[in-house]
Amino acid sequence: MTTLATAAPPVRFGDLVAAEWIKMRSLRSTAWTLSLSTLFVLGSAAAASLADRQHLAGTALESPDFLCFDAFPPAGYVTLMLVAGSIGAITMVSEYGSGLIRTTTVAVPARREVVLAKAATVATVWAVVGVVVSLASLLLSQAILSGSDAGVPITHPGVGRALLAAVLVAPVCALIGLGLGVLVRHSAAAVLATCFSLLILPMLFAPTNQWSADVNQLMVVSAWRRLVQTWGQLPGDPIQGATVTESWAVLLVWPLVTLALALLVIRRRDV
């Protein structure tokens, strides 16, 4: 009697996400990277808050708006963006470098689903990090500043928006890095492309005149700065800044475009 082999059930998307999570958590460097990034951002927030608290000692505070920025210091968050983007890029290109991508594509020929599973896993992990870091840095900075009666409550206008932007910027950068990793497929080049897009490119368009400022405002770091800036446009500033809606659009478009390009290219390339 001939026994017919039973076809294996199709791989579900949830299975792909679970496999990607196992790959990520099995690396010791993942926990170390996430922990050190969190501590660095919190240290930056504490340092900025302590500096402002000392500066404000014995002075009357007219407006607390700028003090909310202490919870989201550029030094800490730009570093977080670069780390998230680099990890996102390495998540993809490491499989090309090790040759594991061949095993992956044999097990799951649907390459686009693999990329989407990686994107879902990376975005979720960095979103959790974003929630922890943003809430902790806000609470820490306001605890320090409250000693000088300069704390800004979470109900203050613009603080909720700043908090949400601080949560989302890490997964946004991780997805950008992942997309660039698919496009470049070389570890060093992918990380370099990610860092160039997130940090160096905005520096090439300093907001010294309107056209340069318009290009600068299309960058992720500039959009993040606008969203965490609770005081809006300063009166008398000759350079027209981006609106809140435009800044949200920038944070949305960058990962969507890079992922769309990645999904388009992944089907046209050999592994």
Rank of each mutant, 00 (worst) to 15 (best):
S63Y: 09
E113P: 00
G130M: 08
F66C: 03
A127T: 08
G177Q: 01
T103G: 13
A166H: 06
L192C: 10
H156R: 12
I90R: 03
L183N: 08
L100K: 08
A60T: 09
L67D: 00
G151S: 14
L116N: 14
V152D: 05
L82Q: 04
V78D: 05
R111G: 02
P171V: 04
P157A: 07
L61H: 14
M92E: 08
Y96H: 14
V172A: 11
A119E: 07
G179I: 01
V152F: 08
V122S: 02
S137T: 10
A162I: 08
V159R: 02
V114A: 15
V184C: 12
T79Y: 09
F72M: 06
I154D: 02
M92S: 11
T121C: 13
V169C: 08
T103L: 12
V167G: 00
F69V: 09
L180M: 03
G151A: 14
I87V: 15
V128E: 01
A136Y: 07
A189Q: 08
I144W: 00
L61I: 12
V169Q: 04
R185G: 13
L180V: 01
F72G: 01
S197A: 14
L80S: 11
R112F: 03
P157N: 08
G181H: 02
W126D: 01
I176W: 00
Y96F: 15
V184G: 05
S148A: 13
G181W: 00
E113Y: 09
A75G: 09
A188D: 10
A117W: 07
V133G: 00
V122N: 06
T79N: 04
L192A: 13
T104R: 13
A188Q: 08
A117M: 15
P157S: 07
V114C: 06
F196I: 14
V115H: 09
A143R: 09
T104G: 15
I87E: 09
T103E: 07
V108W: 08
G99T: 08
F72D: 01
L140M: 13
A110M: 12
A127H: 07
P153W: 05
V182Q: 09
